[in-house]
Simulated scan of single mutants.
Amino acid sequence: MKIAVIADIHGNAPALEAVLADIDSQGIREIVNLGDHLSGPIDPARTADLLMARDIVSIRGNHDRALLTLEPEAMISIDRFARQALDEGHLSWLRALPPTRHMDEHGLFLCHGTPQDDLVYWLEDLTPEGIVHRSDAARIERLAAGVEAPVLLCAHTHIPRLVTLSDGRLVLNPGSVGCPAYEDDEPVVHKVETGTPRASYAVIDRRADGSTEVAFRLIAYDHASAARLATENGHPDWARVLSTGWV
């Protein structure tokens, strides 16, 4: 059985449409979605409509939480833009999403950052100087303790990565559908850059013999139109990110 894993769409409806079309072309019917769906200066409402129409299994990310808990004046600009674009139906959908989810029937656990915190990087870590690097094995194992599932899914860093734990469990980040690079100042100033404008997601193949295969897919789409929308919506910085995969 194949399951598509998407995450970090960030309101990029053109990228989401391309990814959904690619998923459909493979005959994959099961999709799970790991959060940060709508915050971004492209088309949050259209993104929400696409997700709601497909009834995709979804959880809440840190930006989704901010949309629901902060007053607009306290939000960062991409959250505020999304909040202004969404209607009550979109917000009701967000409110119903859990922060984590067990899918025992598929052997999956879903979270956004780590099982404990939607703001913490799981498979990546930072040096004091803000250099992003793969986290060490002991830390990854520690954060996975007590989570009983063969495949643990995370997102948040936008970097596609697969790690095999010492007990054989897999920890998978599918990368970002809609935002291939960003800059953050917590816990220190740093950049995350994939170096490509393509939309990223992953496919899990749970086979009858009990084995699991994982494939990452990087999908070309009309990123120029997404970049134009970002510029028109007051975020030319996002235009470079969407066009190049670099900040």
Rank of each mutant, 00 (worst) to 15 (best):
M103W: 09
P115A: 03
P160S: 03
L38T: 01
G107A: 05
I131C: 13
F109R: 01
L97W: 04
D87L: 03
I56S: 05
G168H: 02
G89T: 07
I140H: 09
S77W: 13
W93S: 06
I131M: 11
G40L: 01
P128V: 07
R60E: 10
E73V: 15
V177E: 02
P160L: 03
M52H: 01
D49V: 04
Q116A: 14
D79T: 11
G168I: 01
H106D: 14
P72V: 09
Y121V: 05
M75K: 02
I131P: 06
A145V: 13
D87Y: 05
A74K: 13
F81L: 05
H106V: 11
A74T: 11
V147L: 11
G113E: 02
E129M: 11
E148C: 14
W93L: 04
G113N: 02
A48Q: 00
G146K: 05
R54P: 10
R80H: 10
H37F: 08
L152C: 12
E71I: 11
D167K: 01
R101M: 15
R134P: 14
H63T: 14
P115S: 03
D104C: 11
T127R: 09
G146N: 09
T127K: 07
I42S: 07
H133A: 12
L67K: 06
R65F: 11
T114M: 05
Q84G: 15
L70D: 14
T127P: 08
I159N: 09
R101C: 11
V132C: 11
L70Y: 15
N62L: 05
L67C: 08
D55Y: 13
T47S: 00
L94I: 08
P174C: 03
I140R: 12
V132P: 03
